[in-house]
Computed example of a mutant assay.
Amino acid sequence: MIKQKNSIWQGRFDGDEALQQRIWQRVSLQNSYDEISPKDFVLHGFAVDEGVRRNKGRVGAALAPEVIRRNMANFPVVKPDFSLKDFGDVACASTLEAAQAELAAKTSSVLANGGRSVVLGGGHEVTYAHFSGLRKAFPDKKIGIINIDAHFDNREPEAGIGPSSGTGFWQIAQEGAMHSLHIGIQRNSNTLKLFDTAHQYGMHYITADEIFFENLPGIYERIDDLANSADVIYLTICIDVFNAAIAPGVSALAYSGIFADAAFMHFYRHILQNKKLLALDVAEVNPALDPDQRTARLAASLVNEWLMS
Rank of each mutant, 00 (worst) to 15 (best):
N190L: 03
H130M: 14
A177F: 00
F138T: 02
H151D: 11
D153P: 04
P157S: 02
L134D: 00
E158P: 00
A177G: 06
H124A: 12
I185E: 03
G160V: 08
V118F: 14
H179D: 12
V126G: 04
N154G: 00
I145W: 02
L181R: 05
A137V: 03
D153S: 01
S164L: 12
N188A: 05
I172Y: 01
V118R: 04
G184Y: 04
R116E: 14
G168T: 09
F131Y: 15
D140I: 01
L134G: 06
F131M: 08
A173G: 10
H151L: 06
A173E: 05
N190A: 08
G168H: 05
V118I: 15
I183N: 08
Q171A: 11
I146L: 13
T127N: 11
F138L: 00
W170F: 13
H151E: 06
K141T: 01
T127A: 15
G122V: 12
S180G: 12
E125R: 03
V126E: 06
L181M: 13
L134W: 00
T127C: 10
T167Y: 06
H182E: 08
V119H: 03
D140M: 06
F138W: 09
E156M: 12
S132K: 12
R187A: 13
V118L: 15
I143Q: 01
V118T: 11
A159L: 14
R116Q: 13
P163F: 00
R116S: 11
D153V: 05
K136H: 07
F169Q: 04
I172R: 09
H179S: 14
A129Y: 09
I183W: 09
G176E: 05
K141Q: 15
L181S: 05
I143L: 13
N154H: 03
L134F: 08
D140C: 07
G121P: 10
K136M: 12
H182L: 09
N154A: 14
A159Q: 12
G162I: 02
I172E: 00
F169N: 05
P157Y: 03
I146K: 02
Q186S: 14
F131E: 00
N154T: 02
D149H: 07
N154P: 04
S117D: 13
G168W: 07
V118W: 06
G133V: 05
N147Y: 13
A177N: 02
K141S: 15
G123D: 15
G162H: 06
A177Y: 00
K136T: 12
G115W: 09
F131K: 02
G122A: 12
A159K: 11
S164R: 01
H151W: 07
D140R: 12
P139K: 08
I143N: 03
D140E: 15
Q174H: 01
Q186K: 09
Q186T: 07
P139Q: 08
A177C: 06
T127H: 05
L134Y: 06
H182A: 04
S132E: 10
G160D: 10
S189W: 04
S132P: 03
G144Y: 10
R135I: 06
P139V: 05
H130E: 08
I148H: 03
G166E: 09
G162N: 10
N188P: 00
Q174V: 01
I148Q: 02
F131A: 07
G160C: 07
R116W: 10
I148T: 00
T127S: 15
S165C: 13
N190T: 04
T167A: 10
R155G: 11
F138E: 01
R116D: 11
A159M: 11
